[in-house]
């Protein structure tokens, strides 16, 4: 097995996870556990595909995918932020809704291929100059334009989170909304903004699958990636930079079965295909055993903020 090609494929397979994980990190940073990730990814995937197929315009496709993810997040935000309902149940319902929506809207596209004009834009394109760097260039800079975008996205959001006033405020909203409120921060505006950002990124993650990774529509294209991303948030200890490592590692687990097929291993392929899910469990268990202050979720995750109750 060519290791460089494997690492390059890891980055590719990990990119949808990276988008969704970073999106969920920001949602949780403002105190909202959104279990609707899988649903929002599917909404983005199907909308991106349908718009790409219908208009042959790659830019419209990607914007529509982000908007679809945001629409899902908006439903979630209205119900959990403004109407203060249970976050777990609302998120789960969003996943069921998104799955139904994708199956409904994607029904007529099953097996269809994206037009060449769209899929070629999202296919692997060597990045000028950087792709000539040995090893690094081959692994990281011979990818889809969406992968390049994900690098910029993580770095940009990391800077926002750790180096700006907005980042400080948003972390305060998640840790202690009452204190944030008292210091004059508009808590709900922050919550809406970052929950919607999370939705947009999930939508993009889904669209990466349907526009670039597998540019043919298939039912349930995400296959649990949204859920793995929720677990990766814990793995990454709510840090977008660490999400990169986790996403690529799980991307690797996702493709390893396929790669190992030609080696006639004594382990059946079906068992190898359990790997990403089993590894997620392992991560969950290890992270819960190794509890530390740094590894904790933001203080208010899961709790509705009601100003009059503070």
């Amino acid at each position: 097995m060519n290791m460089i090609s494997f690492f390059s494929a890891m980055v590719q397979a990990g990119t949808p996870l990276l988008f969704a994980t970073v999106g969920e990190i920001f949602s949780q940073k403002v105190g909202h556990l959104n279990l609707g990730l899988e649903g929002m990814m599917l909404m983005g995937a199907v909308t991106g595909f349908a718009v790409g197929y219908g208009t042959s315009n790659p830019l419209l496709a990607i914007v529509a995918a982000a908007l679809a993810g945001m629409a899902g997040a908006l439903i979630y935000a209205i119900i959990t932020v403004s109407l203060k309902a249970n976050q777990e149940v609302t998120g789960l319902t969003l996943t069921i809704f998104g799955t139904g929506y994708a199956s409904f809207a994607g029904n007529k596209y099953v097996g269809y291929k994206l037009p060449e004009g769209v899929s070629s834009v999202f296919a692997k394109t060597p990045f000028p100059i950087l792709s000539d760097i040995p090893v690094i260039g081959e692994i990281f800079f011979d990818q889809s334009i969406l992968v390049y975008f994900s690098y910029v996205m993580v770095i940009f959001l990391g800077i926002v989170l750790y180096k700006t006033k907005y980042g400080l405020n948003l972390r305060m909203v998640g840790e202690n909304p009452a204190a944030a409120d008292a210091s004059g921060i508009n808590v709900n505006r922050y919550k809406y903004f970052y929950i919607l950002l999370g939705g947009a990124l999930s939508g993009l993650g889904g669209a990466f699958l349907s526009l670039s990774y597998i540019p043919v529509w298939q039912e349930n294209i995400t296959a649990g990636k949204g859920w793995i991303a929720v677990a990766l948030v814990i793995f990454a200890t709510w840090n977008p930079y660490r999400a990169i490592v986790g996403s690529y590692f799980f991307g690797g687990l996702d493709i390893i079965g396929y790669r190992l097929q030609k080696f006639e291993l004594p382990i059946p392929i079906y068992i190898i295909n359990m790997l990403p899910y089993a590894a997620t469990i392992l991560v969950l268990v290890l992270m819960s055993i190794k509890k530390s202050k740094e590894n904790k979720a933001p203080g208010s995750v899961g709790k509705a903020y009601f100003r009059e109750e503070r």
Binding site: L35, E88, G224, W227, V230, A231, I234, P268, Y270, I271, N273, M274, Y277, A278, T280, I281, L284, V285, S288, I289, K291
Partner: peptide, 22 residues
């Protein structure tokens, strides 16, 4: 250990499904 049960039970869905597929 207080391990997150939402994700744990969900992952076990996929493992059970792969098992029955096998």
């Amino acid at each position: 250990f207080g391990t997150n049960e939402t994700l744990f039970t969900l992952m076990l869905n996929y493992i059970a499904l792969k098992w029955v597929t096998y």
